[in-house]
Design a protein around this nucleic acid. Structure first.
Lengths: 235, 235
DNA sequence: ACCTGAACACCGTTCAAGT
DNA sequence: ACCTGAACACCGTTCAAGT
């Protein structure tokens, strides 16, 4: 028999999605997330930029694959018991991933890049809260509250590490400032700001609110179970 | 006397910061936030791109000025009484501005663009919460919880209006999908998702948490019940 | 099927020159 | 002091051509 498609194993030199993604992640770790370009990634895998387009339909497609690769290994449901511990675990884990891969918040926020794997925390949240007796709509709203809070917080924290404003820009900025346009006046956080504590505080705020919603919601259901059920079915 | 500097009023054709900012905002309203470039803004004010650099030190400087222009007129403290009404007013107003100017969340999130005026909501929050007896650190943490939640939520909502994925990209995406790389699988929100209700729900969650923090904080000063409660609850 | 090389249509910004 | 025009060093992506 001749050599069929199935027999032909790719040589070690052949370009694959996986190799490109690994190279991109390494590039982000060393050079920073801003420097990730098709040309740059192609160079690190030793190939022409256009070769990437045989494996990814666009840069967005590459970015989405990177996000998926990061998220596929992440664990968002531990063996915690109770909705509060489950949600705390889930979003602490989510935050940890976002801080480990600072490009992730940007990928999940920006454009239509979010891959299917990005919605694992949503599943955990919905399951935990519905188990606790919360209507689905409210559980979804709670999820978005938590995920928006976490995304923006980690995004902000990651961006703070990079200083910005090279000397050449500063010269012109100061010249303009001399003419009355103050380009400065940037308010600052306390330099020793504890992001971990701030996150835990915010998480506690939200989960305290959830607890209250569950309590008042439960009171409501015992009284007007039929109405609540009808409302849920109507959506 | 000759014509001095003070006499020389700028002709109606002269370029000013204000004219550039107005033009940029108009451009954003019509063409969209993504299309705002130095070249594009220059064209709408009828000038060469480099002319802008006599009034702004960089594109970031322009963007910061735009953000400041938007925020300078916004009102974040109404005549509400009580911390809860004050915070609700403040962040409803903040959200309204972010939705009216969809570029704003991106400006406040991205890089070092945030102008001094962006911190007006912080002042309102800190004042209201300190008035209510909350320690400054916790008030700051509460502010960041609220502002991060609001920014991410409005940012997400604004981005949803633009569909994305032109036909040319879709062709290649489908070709790749046929080879086993599913580029799709994008989970969706319910199509009739009520962002206003979701925001109000999240705001309520957080403010309920704040209320609880104020109560336990106050209890701590008078008795030790809160501490023991916390210990029992805490992990 | 996969990769290359040249080219296109963009960016922000520098620099030298005009007035 | 303010503006222009050409140029530089980048982008993502198209297209025609190689193998």
């Amino acid at each position: 028999m001749g050599v069929t498609k199935a027999d032909r194993t790719p040589s070690s030199r052949s370009l694959t999605r996986g190799r490109v993604i690994e190279a991109a992640l390494a590039l982000i770790d060393t050079v920073g997330a801003d420097a990730i370009t098709m040309r740059g990634v192609a160079e690190t895998v030793g190939v022409t930029p256009m070769a990437l387009y045989n494996h990814f339909s666009s840069k967005d497609d590459l970015l989405r694959a990177i996000a998926a690769h990061i998220l596929i290994d992440a664990v968002f449901d531990g063996d915690e018991t109770g909705w509060r511990a489950q949600l705390a675990f889930c979003f602490r884990a989510f935050r940890a991933v976002c801080l480990r891969y600072p490009i992730l918040p940007r990928l999940l926020e920006t454009s239509e890049i979010a891959p299917a794997a990005a919605f694992a925390p949503m599943d955990v949240t919905l399951h935990a809260l519905e188990q606790a007796g919360m209507p689905t709509v409210d559980a979804l709203r709670t999820y978005f509250t938590l995920v928006n809070f976490t995304l923006a917080q980690t995004s902000y924290q990651s961006r703070r590490s990079y200083p910005g404003l090279e000397p050449s820009k500063r010269v012109r900025a100061e010249r303009l400032a001399g003419r009355g346009h103050d380009a400065a006046g940037q308010p600052q956080l306390p330099s020793g700001w504890d992001f971990d504590a701030a996150f835990e505080f915010g998480l506690d705020l939200i989960l305290d609110g959830v607890r209250r919603a569950l309590l008042t919601g439960r009171a409501k259901t015992t009284a007007k179970a039929a109405a609540s059920k009808r409302r849920r079915r109507g959506e």
